[in-house]
Every structure is written in C-alpha cells, then in structure tokens.
C-alpha cells in the first residue's frame, strides 16, 4: 500500500510530540485504543480557564496512519475553543490525510482522543467547582 504524501510528512516529521504533566490543572489527557488492537493514542491538551486550547502534545503506538492522524489533530485543535474542538469529525482527518478505507479507524481513534482529553479537562474543573464550594478542604490542599 502506498502512503499519501501527507501521511508520510506527519510520520517523518511528527508535530507536537511529547507529554504535559498529567496532573496539571490546565491539562486534559485522553488515552484511547488498546495495545492488543495495535493502536494506542495519548493526546494532551493545554486549555485556558476560558476553554481555549493553547497547546497540544501526543504520543502514539500504532501504524503510520495512526501516528499521522494524531500528529495532524494536535495542529488542528490549537487555538480552537473546546466546544468547537468537540465537533471535529474523523472525516476531516480522513480528507486531510487522504486515508484509505482500511485506515479510517485511525481517524476515529484521533477524534475519540480529542473528546477524551476535553472530557478529562472538564472533569478536573468540575472537581474545582466542588472544592471551591467546600473551602475548608481547599485550604488543606
């Protein structure tokens, strides 16, 4: 199977590889896929209190198309509001990277990773709101 030039470009020069501290307040982490399925994506988003994605990092275990999908997604989400990022569809990734039908699952995984990372960030902030409502506990922390 021949790879598209965009897949090759992302595979050879992956954007935004790395990790943010998982426990940081402004970081949402999404880990999707499973090793026995041959794909695991970790996507981390740094999000402002106002809900704007400032920065993104990824690490991916998977085929070249999985690596390219996650690399592309880190570029795609930067600067977007989380509401807007939540509406990103896998079809946008398929189109940009020219993925063949057998690789569509890679784009689905990348879409899931965005949603998982934002959900993780939101859950951290729900906790904030709860701890803000209980000042005694917050003071201890």
């Amino acid at each position: 199977m021949a790879y598209s030039s965009k897949v090759l470009d992302h595979y050879n020069n992956p954007r935004n590889v790395g990790s943010f501290p998982k426990d940081a307040e402004d970081v949402g982490t999404g880990v999707v896929g499973a090793p026995e399925c041959g794909d695991v994506m970790k996507l981390q988003l740094k999000i402002t209190p106002e809900g704007v994605i400032e920065d993104a990092r990824f690490k991916t275990f998977g085929c070249g198309s999985a690596i390219a999908s996650s690399s592309y997604v880190t570029e795609l989400v930067k600067g977007k509001r989380i509401e807007e990022a939540m509406t990103i569809k896998n079809s946008a990734i398929v189109q940009e990277l020219n993925l063949p039908p057998v690789k569509i699952h890679c784009s689905v995984l990348a879409e899931d990773a965005i949603k998982a990372a934002i959900t993780d960030w939101k859950s951290k902030h729900e906790k904030d709101e709860k701890s803000a409502a209980a000042p005694g506990k917050a003071a201890q922390g």
């Binding site: 992956p14 590889v17 990790s19 880990v31 090793p35 695991v40 994506m41 970790k42 690490k59 991916t60 275990f61 690596i67």
Partner: peptide
C-alpha cells in the same frame, strides 16, 4: 519508542 505512549 520516543513516540510511544506505551514505552513512556
């Protein structure tokens, strides 16, 4: 491996 979340 530097790219792999599993290795990390």
């Amino acid at each position: 491996r530097d790219l792999s979340p599993l290795y990390e």
